[in-house]
Write a protein that binds this DNA or RNA. Structure first.
Lengths: 292, 292
DNA sequence: AGAACATGATTCCCGAAAGGTATCACTCGC
DNA sequence: GCGAGTGATACCTTTCGGGAATCATGTTCT
């Protein structure tokens, strides 16, 4: 088999049609260049250059081989580049899980920035509730998730990427909507409260229960999606607690009220396998906002 | 820059995921294989294989690079093959000139045989009268011609590839058509004879003149193409001499008559530049019929 | 025609690089 | 905890590639 150096030598001679000049271009002397071309011809099994004491020209086999040789050398360049870029996370694939509400403040800006800074990274999006994301991460179906606590921190690593206050959402004509002041837990006494699934939306379930602990509200529903909660509120089925960014979902017929003391902030975490090796993942992690 | 050996080494390790087995497959020992992979990684500038004392696996960069490496090695094979096949005349292009009548007995079988034995040779056909073929050969526009003598044998080489008798063609209702015996030169006394251009169809012109020398016929036309001659005969404009194979042109309303002694045979020559180097040409020359 | 020049091939030498053997460092399974 | 297995390292030998000088041959200028 021939070597890449021999290919470069051949291409140089084929382009210069002169061993001396080709050797100069390759920063070497003429004798070893002649030998390399001879070796290449023996390896290929065909005469590529017709040469005598006064002229050098390509044979037909040489013309055909020159095309292939150039293609090969070009591929050598691109292969190295590609590997380097994948290694640095500038090319490749990121399988990204996210919850519906994480998209509002975090996913959009992230995707926008990635398409600018990492245009050769393919992002495959999976909208899933947090437990499904964790499952996907453990199974190796996802590289990165945007979800809510809690999760197993032995296998998974995480970072807070967004933190926002909790707020209340009530029907537009509800008495609480007219108060015009931050609501306290006591304001919810006797209200029907729409809350979250303790398994599929455990984080919001616990935030809700914790905030309203001493006011003994009537928990009426147990849904997974924040948007569903707000739609139920709009339908007059009760009131609920949601993250402040839910305002921008633009549901008609509801009013959002601040909470007194605001309770615990709502946290969004980026989550990934602690043993993950994906260069794209590492690169993307540097692009996520820092909190704490 | 990396070497092709390093690529083969990497591919072997990537496929075996085991340095020892990969080394065995490459007919070498493990230590130099490890070094080659290390060198490759340094040359590429990215870690391609994640390895420790008990497992070897591809990094993401390694996965991307493996694809390119396989493509490269495949191209190495095909590049060599291609050059070899071009060198042996099994691939490439043949620019072939021919005269209209040479197609009848020679061109067809040649093309059929080439498409069977040299399927990767592209044949570019140029129908030209002999002088135009000679011009094309000298200008380097043609690789091979099928034409009639004479031609400059200093620059051009040639071989007889077909030889056939001359015959007469007369209108179907002509008195000569009814004789039912081979015609002699004397039979043409007083006939209007359609003949050929002394420059563009010099060979047939001279054959005609030579055969009819002592019978003093009336030479009426001077055309280039044999088919034109026969059509003029069919139109009753005279009689003519044509190669025997012209019978298979299938022109209606004419009769073909053998000639006494048949005169000189009509020769068809394959003609090429004496200094031609085309491997396809040499290969094709071996496929042409031998005469003489 | 002869000398000077140009050009690719050949020869010989040296240093760099590749492969082999022996060994090390580390992990895992019993 | 020890032996088996695996990749890395050290060291040696061989091979291969590059450089200087020279050769062989054909061209050009006088």
């Amino acid at each position: 088999m021939f070597s890449l150096d021999q290919l470069s030598a051949f291409v140089a001679v084929a382009e210069e049609l002169h061993f001396g000049r080709a050797a100069e271009r390759l920063n070497m002397t003429q004798p070893p260049l002649s030998r390399q071309v001879q070796k290449l011809e023996r390896a290929v099994g065909a005469r590529l250059l017709e040469r005598d004491n006064r002229k050098v020209e390509l044979t037909e086999a040489g013309q055909a081989f020159l095309v292939e040789a150039r293609r090969l050398l070009a591929l050598v360049e691109t292969a190295g580049d590609l590997a380097r870029r994948v290694d640095q996370g500038a090319a490749g694939t990121l399988r990204l899980g996210f919850t519906a509400t994480s998209a509002i403040r975090t996913l959009g800006p992230l995707l926008r920035r990635m398409s600018e800074e990492l245009p050769d990274v393919d992002v495959i999006l999976h909208e899933r509730v947090t437990p499904a994301q964790l499952d996907g991460l453990l199974r190796g179906e996802l590289d990165l998730g945007l979800g809510r606590p809690p999760f197993d921190s032995d296998v998974l690593d995480s970072r807070v990427v967004d933190r926002e206050p909790l707020c209340a959402v009530v029907p537009g004509n509800h008495r609480l909507a007219a108060l015009g002041r931050p609501l306290s837990a006591g304001d919810f006494a006797g209200e029907r409260v729409i809350s979250y699934s303790p398994t599929q939306a455990r984080y919001f379930h616990e935030l809700t229960v914790r905030f309203l602990a001493e006011s003994h509200p009537r928990i009426e529903q147990r849904v997974q999606q924040i948007l569903t909660v707000i739609l139920l509120v709009a339908a007059g089925r009760g009131v609920a607690l949601v993250p402040a960014s839910a305002r921008s979902l633009g549901v008609e017929g509801v009013t959002y009220c601040d909470l007194e003391g605001a309770g615990d902030p709502v946290e969004l975490h980026a989550i990934w396998r602690r043993d993950a090796t994906s260069p794209v993942l590492r690169r993307v992690l540097t692009m996520l906002p820092e909190h704490h």
